[in-house]
Amino acid sequence: MLSAESLAKIDRELAKYPADQFRSAAMSALRIALTERRDTGATPAERCLNADVIEFVANYIGIPPVAAYEVATFYNMYDMKPVGKYKITVCTNLPCALQGGVNAAQYISGKLGIALGETSADGKYTLLEGECMGACGDAPVLLLNNHKMCSFMTPEAIDKKLAELE
């Protein structure tokens, strides 16, 4: 289900916690599983978490599957729905909005021809609205594939970034 490399990463996370507290690694383990699927999935559906993967992760770290599912659905960065090769999450919360966050989201939406919450027909892009990323000073900010933060995303910067993703 997961590569040896991902399992080794999960093992490293497990080692951070006391021996009987393996559950603590659930968040990392799900993130590692999601990252592997994002990096290797060929279609939007293959890039998100699904029942089999969550159950596998739960069994690997030794917690009930439904407990892992609770975690996967509580934290909103875990992709539970099909997602494009490039998932772009733009913060539109108040401080960001005041510094162009909403405009940036609209600009990307117009450029990609998809509304917020949608994935492009070719499965390449998903555009989402995000909540506070703790980087308001850098607004407009967006997260690319959950982990890469792009700061000061003026229209020019967005053009440049999208060009890199081609």
Partner: peptide, 10 residues
């Protein structure tokens, strides 16, 4: 000391 990350929950 260890690092633990959140994943999107204020």
């Amino acid at each position: 000391l260890f690092a633990h990350h959140g994943y999107g929950a204020y």
